[in-house]
């Protein structure tokens, strides 16, 4: 065996990923930060503009609201599903896992387009309205409802997976112990199962929240032009106005806002606080 010091081996193993991240992630990020203060000239004007113009603050608000709504909706929808998946012994759990998995591996774009079809003028909902004689169907496409629904649909598998990963490792014996100690089903869930599933709730929420904060495709295709999300604004600044500096500033604000929310969330619901040291 070759006599190599363990540290050298460790560094050698770390190097490819580190170099990749530094060149393709950290460096561009630094450049964005740099551009946000220097393009076209050195100033903090871009940031002042973001925080003084009602349009941009509103966009930030819309973005936050969408992220909160989608996260909450995903949690409410995914929790029972993941619970059944984790607790059913037989085929049901495997079938559900497969369905969620297929959904997980289908591209965002394909799934977003499918909503275009569903909500479209010649889609199933329009057909239903016509068949039932309910008259004109309400405008669904290009509303924040469609955008939120689409994003919830896209993010649901992430939430399910995050919850399932934790729930599938909660031993049946914990719940059984709770029952044997006199806890009826709901009390056992509230006092034992739910607290034990919290790491999954936290992981899933952080994951979904962070992704939705930067969502572009779905709000662009399904959402209302009047209530755009911040990434759409960034894209517009770059693609249509070539305003690299301002686009960078918006991106930095998005990044910072996401980081702040995640930090607060982690402080409030941090695992270290939940489970002792």
């Amino acid at each position: 065996m070759l006599m190599v010091r363990p540290q050298i081996v460790a560094w050698a193993l770390l190097a490819p990923a580190t170099i990749y991240l530094v060149v393709l992630f950290v460096a561009p990020l630094v450049q964005v930060l740099f551009l946000s203060f220097t393009d076209p000239k050195l100033s903090a004007n871009h940031f002042i503009r973001v925080f003084s113009a009602p349009l941009y603050l509103r966009t930030l608000g819309v973005t936050f609201q969408a992220a909160f709504t989608v996260t909450a909706a995903c949690l409410v929808l995914a929790y029972p599903l993941a619970y059944v998946m984790a607790r059913s012994k037989g085929r049901l759990g495997i079938i559900l896992l497969a369905i969620v998995g297929i959904s997980f591996w289908t591209s965002f774009l394909v799934r977003t387009y499918s909503w275009l079809v569903i909500f479209g003028n010649r889609g199933p909902i329009a057909a239903l309205y016509e068949a039932m004689g309910w008259g004109e169907m309400p405008q669904l496409l290009f509303t924040s409802f469609a955008s939120t629904l689409g994003m919830t649909h896209l993010m649901l598998p992430y939430m399910v997976m995050a919850l399932y990963a934790v729930m599938s490792r909660i031993e049946d014996n914990y719940v059984r112990a709770a029952h044997s100690l006199g806890a009826p089903p709901f009390a056992a869930f509230r006092t034992v199962y739910f607290p034990l599933s919290l790491p999954g709730v936290i992981n899933g929420s952080l994951l979904v929240f962070a992704i939705v904060m930067g969502f572009y495709v779905t709000p662009q295709l399904l959402g209302s032009p009047q209530s755009r999300m911040i990434s759409q604004l960034v894209a517009e600044q770059v693609n249509e106005l070539l305003a690299w500096g301002f686009a960078s500033a918006l991106a930095v604000v998005l990044l910072a806002a996401t980081a702040i929310v995640i930090t607060i969330y982690n402080r409030v619901a941090g695992l270290d606080r939940l489970w002792g040291d």
Binding site: R176, A177, V192, L196, W275
Partner: peptide, 12 residues
């Protein structure tokens, strides 16, 4: 009352 094989103490 029941004592389980791996105790099933509530970790939280």
């Amino acid at each position: 009352g029941m004592v389980f094989q791996n105790y099933a103490l509530f970790p939280h």
